[in-house]
Amino acid sequence: MGGHGVTEGREAAVSEVAGSRARDLLRRLMPASILEEHESCSELTLVVDRSELVEVVKLLRDHHEALYNLPVLVTAVDYPDREPDLPRFDVVYVFRSLPFNDVVQIVVRVTEQDPHVPTLEDLFAGMDWHERETFDLFGIVFDGHHDLKRILLPSDWEGHPLRKDYISFGEPVAFTHNLDWALQEAQRPDTMPGEME
């Protein structure tokens, strides 16, 4: 294996709660940016304000005490039935700090009417595809993305399948309780019983 070093790997101690390094730094330098903190399964989720997302991620990437330099994933979670004062979508970012061996989850909340988030493409080259995927499946718009278009689905697909109100399963089946509907459907020449409108 000439010239190819074999190392023992990095064995930095894993901090007690994943993401606490990011939280401590943000509390110190940008205390107003953290709107909420949630802990689950010893992992921290930091809810930050949309207007400060770019600044927060930039700080976490560049500050010598954090160095969250690897973009792990971007996705969203849809809560259509949330309390009326809470926005519908959680846009989730996960970043990994290779030097400090830590993972942090950042959440930005956006409403259905205004599903816009600033793009992080300029900070991480790998964000491009992740943001496109989230746009494709959830309809979250990443402002400033150089080429925001569908990535997994065909370009003329309608709707955003991972939204909860997009039904892709459970088409009605004829049973006694919906017999009227089933008979009505059976009389229509162009559809099979059970087919969705």
Partner: peptide
Amino acid sequence: TTYTAIESARGELGYY
């Protein structure tokens, strides 16, 4: 919620 990752043959395979 949890983000749990393992080292698969191809790299970081995580489930959120």
